[in-house]
Design a protein around this nucleic acid. Structure first.
Lengths: 163, 163
DNA sequence: TGTAGTGGCATGAAAACCCATTGTATCCCC
DNA sequence: GGGGATACAATGGGTTTTCATGCCACTACA
């Protein structure tokens, strides 16, 4: 693995009535340095009630990794089944969306629901991927450490809102 | 780990009205010898009320180390959660900022607040990373040894201020 | 013909960039 | 050893570019 360009930093952007959001420029620049795509892949996160997002090149990498794991356990039926499940998760349960010239994506309704996204979207860099949260959900979540919540509080305050 | 080039030395620089600070040249030279980036990563320090700073290559190293730990414990859900939290701390709670041709960065407002930075910034080499302090906070902190405070006193005196 | 989804354009704010000045340390020549 | 001259570091200010986002126009399908 070990990608050269990593997602980091945070931002809070508005979701408009049509479900469009600007993907922060500093995240887009990582996507474009990793490959030459202008699309992002959305998935619901494995551990948190939010969306996980990454570039198509990373999706391919993830797939290759899964395949290698499978080959090692070729004779084990349980591993076969698990592979099939994970493979479906990685591809069927994701959506690839392009962003336009001004860096905006349209959140697909299913993803918008999965991430409980309303009118604000909190973007968090997470190294190989990044996350998209509803800031209110983020603040309530028991598994999110307090000093991380400070980020959300700061971003909300900066925006003049206190929701 | 074991990086070849280490951050050392100290300096006291001004923060201007726009929140800009010159990163001391001797620290920049370490960054550029470690990789070819002209950016630094800022984070709030784990133990001290100051900022921790390092180069992107070091961030990548830190990430790789975390990943290796995770792979050993892939089946353990508690370990998964802890990994997710640490990963977010390492990437969402940090900001990468470029420095311009004259070696200046702009302190992002969130970091400026986290580090309680006002109009003076004390840079301290710390080996693999370096720290950025508000000198007044540094002098007041009970966990900072007296002979270290002498550095800050000297730098302040050198500058003609006594704040 | 109304409505919903998409793409492009315009705006205001903020960030990145560039140039100029000051101060300091270093070097060289006298 | 003294006195410039030079190079580099730090800082101040102004200008251009980019970003996020609201707005409008177009297409498609009902």
């Amino acid at each position: 693995m070990a990608l050269e360009h990593l997602f980091q930093g945070s931002a809070l952007n508005a979701v408009d009535v049509k479900g469009r959001v600007s993907v922060p420029a500093f995240l887009r620049s990582v996507i474009e340095r990793r490959g030459d795509a202008r699309t992002i892949v959305l998935a619901s996160h494995e551990s948190f009630p939010c969306l996980s997002a990454y570039d198509p090149a990373y999706a391919a990498l993830k797939h290759a990794k899964l395949e290698r794991l499978l080959e090692k356990e070729e004779t084990n039926p349980a591993a076969q089944l698990e592979y099939q499940q994970r493979n479906l998760m990685a591809f069927a349960a994701t959506e690839e969306v392009p962003y336009d010239s001004s860096g905006r994506i349209v959140l697909p309704p299913m993803m918008r629901r999965k991430g409980s996204l309303e009118e604000l979207a909190l973007f968090l860099g997470a190294g190989e991927t990044f996350q998209i949260w509803n800031p209110a959900v983020f603040l309530k979540d028991r598994n999110v450490p307090e000093n991380l919540k400070d980020i959300a509080r700061y971003r909300l305050e900066e925006r003049g809102s206190s929701a």
